[in-house]
Design a protein around this nucleic acid. Structure first.
Lengths: 240, 240
DNA sequence: CCAAAAGTGTTTGCTCTACACCCATGG
DNA sequence: CCATGGGTGTAGAGCAAACACTTTTGG
């Protein structure tokens, strides 16, 4: 964005040192998965003030000697029992009034679990009730969490377009139709089946698992993805 | 990245409430410009402990009631006199030992000024000495600022590839050769002159300013860019 | 045998790349 | 008139988009 040119000069100023009042620091997690044709986000129900009984992103305070990313992984593990998951820093939200308890800065993280791992998540639930919600049909949310999810969704779309991250939303083995559905639901646009398959197979990022899935109709081939390709990024740039 | 699966469970935990010790919050700015064929970053010399006499990114503490982005704009304005500049949040760095004064979380911002605006920056200098350094020949830096700049440079490259941001590094009017040089220096690769020009002109993001720049040899046409195009993003995606 | 999803190729237009010479000016 | 950077076009290859029918299974 472009900074408005209003006068900012009468604000606190950069004198020196420790006189500064300190904010609290939290992490929040936007955890995506894909099931039953829906892109879903994990939310937990808050028990306490503020926003008691309201749905919110999993998260919590960062320990004074704890790495921020470790705090994110810890919260993820505590609230879902899930470990070894794709996790990346998303954005830091710190509007002065975003939390009624005082100044709370939150570093939002963005995570993806496949349907397999998600099953084992049920076990990790200890305290609160947690639920997976369709991103396109969210309940009322605590704090600015709707904004955070919105931001995360943008990032997810974005990543889908130039990395192989979409695969992480699915279980280890999946059909190409399922993969196409992931792309269609996340990007909210229709894709051509033949072009989609050709493109995916041409990348060499999936491999045929040698099995078929039997269902209602003609069985579909199961694929898994070549792990080497996950972080693979690739853009055909427009500028210059 | 992928979180290692070491046990995180014995860390502080998410009990409840305010018992948490709070970190300090700062902003740091990576301000890029382009002159004399070099991509440059603004650094200021620290006067006080820690890292006294060491070069560092401009930045400072965030006021307890101040928006983080406002703090970034304020620091920019205080330390350089520059306003109305492209500014975006980059990443939040918070390694526990990154600052010897205690736990300090810094939200890094990424900013771009054109050569025009940069001139007026000289005026804004009050206190410390500030200098523009070639990004590829930086001095020793305070804290983890080398890492922050490295990250910012990645982001800049990245943005150059799919947005029209590169234009902001130059003065209002520029020649296509200058623009090409920006791309070459930032991306560190050689580009074909004819292809470059065709591509840039095809985007319709620059317009001929109707003037020529007279220099040592054949005069060059001056262009300015159609402001509408600045935030324009455009990727030809690879997946799917 | 019917319904439903899986699977499969070709053509056409566009975009990217590689590549070499003349032009306008200042000294 | 020479040195220097400014400016210009084309041909070939590879990529992307549009498009419809056959196959396999379960019920």
């Amino acid at each position: 964005m472009v900074v408005s040119t209003v006068l900012l000069s009468q604000l606190p100023g950069a004198q020196e040192k420790q006189a500064y009042e300190r904010p609290s620091l939290t992490v929040d997690l936007v955890l995506f998965t894909f099931t039953e044709g829906e892109l879903r986000v994990l939310l937990i129900k808050r028990r306490n003030w503020p926003y008691a009984d309201c749905w919110a992103l999993p998260g919590g305070f960062v320990g004074i000697a704890e790495r921020i990313e470790d705090a994110a992984a810890r919260e993820l593990s505590e609230e879902t029992g899930v470990e070894g998951v794709y996790l990346e820093q998303l954005y830091t939200f710190g509007e002065p009034k975003r939390d009624p308890r005082g100044r709370v800065i939150t570093v939002a993280y963005f995570a993806i679990v496949g349907a397999d791992v998600r099953q084992q998540a049920r076990a990790g639930e200890e305290t609160t009730d947690a639920n997976w919600f369709d991103v396109y049909a969210l309940p009322r949310l605590a704090f600015d969490h709707d904004r955070i999810i919105h931001y995360a969704l943008q990032r997810l779309r974005y990543k889908l377009e130039y990395t192989a991250l979409g695969f992480l939303l699915l279980p280890d083995e999946f059909t190409l139709s399922e993969l196409q559905q992931v792309y269609e639901v996340v990007l909210q646009e229709h894709l051509d089946k033949r072009n989609f398959r050709r493109k995916i197979l041409a990348q060499g990022i999936v491999e045929y698992a040698g099995k078929l899935r039997y269902g209602d109709h003609r069985p579909a081939r199961l694929y898994r993805f070549a792990a080497a390709a996950i972080e693979l990024e690739s853009v055909r740039r427009r500028f210059p």
